[in-house]
Amino acid sequence: MSTPLLLSPSQLQQLLPDTKQVSILDASWFMPNSPRNANEEFLKKRVPGAQFLDLDEVSSPHELGLKHMIPSERHFADTCGMTKLTDCIHIYKSSSSITEAFGIEPTSHVILYDTHGVFSSPRALFMFRAFGHEKSSILDGGLPRWEAEGFPIEAKPPARTRNSVYPTPVFDKAMIRSYDQMASNSFTDLHSDPAVELVIDARSRGRFLGTDPEPRPGLSSGHIPHSFSLPFTAFLQTSTIPNSSVQYTTFLPIAELRNALVSHVGDHAEAVIQGKRPITTTCGSGMTAGVLWLGLKLLGAPNVALYDESWTGYASRASSKIEKAAN
């Protein structure tokens, strides 16, 4: 039986008694220009038993200094647990290293959430699925929805994680696109060749068209040639917690997700869903591209990849062709 991509707060609550088989991770992340600090907020309030996943730390170094790039197989395994039993013994002797691993095993059901509702948790889910950890889901609506529906909040210091063994996994390279692959694909004709990948951009329409600035100073806005604008917010709906100004996002129902895809890419939508046309998601830095990736997976699209560097990597290179007009 396959593990659902989305869980509601009530579904997560039903899983909590089995804490040995469930690992909950707060994968909150904020834009570089935001005053909020995800780890500080986690320490103040979280889903009971949750641990904090820093997506900028669980990553690989990049030649351009880009953040939250997909980690190495070994780094991912060491974040989850230890790669062999002798490592567990070594870690037990070093209290400063115990918190580096989450106590996750290959059979653990990993549930990821964020404090926006749906924002950075899909990127975290993408990472787990890319390393073959299929038993993983996101909490749809995140911490705000969990709290709004009356489920308990934890504010005491996080508990120490248990030791676990997590063998080094095999990364699915088909789920990631490199700069060279994206640049090559941008010169191809989408309409004459069914093998050409459709590229959808999760940034705002203004940044896509080059009329609004990028949040990263000195970086040009615009888009990759032949790509389509599909702001990640088009896949989401916003709710307001009663008697407050706090809002959170959740995924649209499947029928509305399909309509959103059709409205942005037209006739290509059905080919993507049926697996006849591969598709790659991109955004500013590889974060909200995860929202589009997850929305497409919810629609059943089989051939979905993510451009890890996304626009920051693409536009930082002098050799990149940047377009600013609408398709």
Rank of each mutant, 00 (worst) to 15 (best):
L7D: 06
P9T: 12
L12P: 02
Q14N: 13
P17G: 06
W29N: 01
M31Y: 02
P32M: 06
P32S: 03
A38H: 02
L43G: 08
V47M: 06
A50N: 03
Q51K: 15
D56Q: 13
P61A: 10
E63A: 10
L64R: 09
P71D: 10
S72A: 08
R74T: 15
R74P: 01
A77C: 14
D78K: 09
C80R: 05
C80H: 02
K84C: 13
D87G: 05
C88W: 13
I91Y: 12
S95F: 01
I98A: 05
I98R: 14
T99F: 10
A101M: 11
E105S: 11
P106C: 04
H109Y: 13
I111C: 01
I111N: 02
Y113E: 04
G117R: 00
G117D: 00
F119T: 10
F119W: 02
P122W: 02
A124K: 00
F128S: 05
F128Q: 03
G132P: 00
H133I: 13
K135S: 14
S136L: 09
W146S: 04
G150L: 10
P152R: 09
P158N: 10
R160P: 01
T161Q: 09
R162A: 14
S164A: 15
D172N: 13
D172Y: 00
A174E: 00
D180K: 08
Q181H: 02
Q181L: 10
A183Y: 08
T188S: 12
T188I: 10
D189M: 13
H191K: 15
H191C: 15
V196N: 07
D201E: 11
S204V: 13
G206C: 08
F208L: 07
P215G: 10
R216S: 10
P217D: 12
P217N: 11
L219R: 04
S220E: 05
G222S: 10
H223W: 07
H223F: 01
I224N: 10
H226S: 11
S227G: 09
L230M: 15
T233N: 04
A234W: 00
F235W: 04
F235I: 07
Q237P: 01
Q237E: 12
T238C: 06
I241H: 08
V246S: 13
Q247I: 15
L252P: 02
L252N: 14
L257G: 11
R258S: 09
R258V: 01
A260K: 00
D267C: 05
A271G: 09
G275T: 11
K276M: 07
T282E: 00
G284M: 06
G284I: 09
S285T: 15
G286F: 01
G286S: 04
M287V: 14
A289Q: 01
V291Y: 01
W293S: 03
L296S: 10
G300M: 11
L306V: 15
E309L: 14
W311L: 13
Y314K: 09
A318D: 13
A318K: 11
A326E: 11
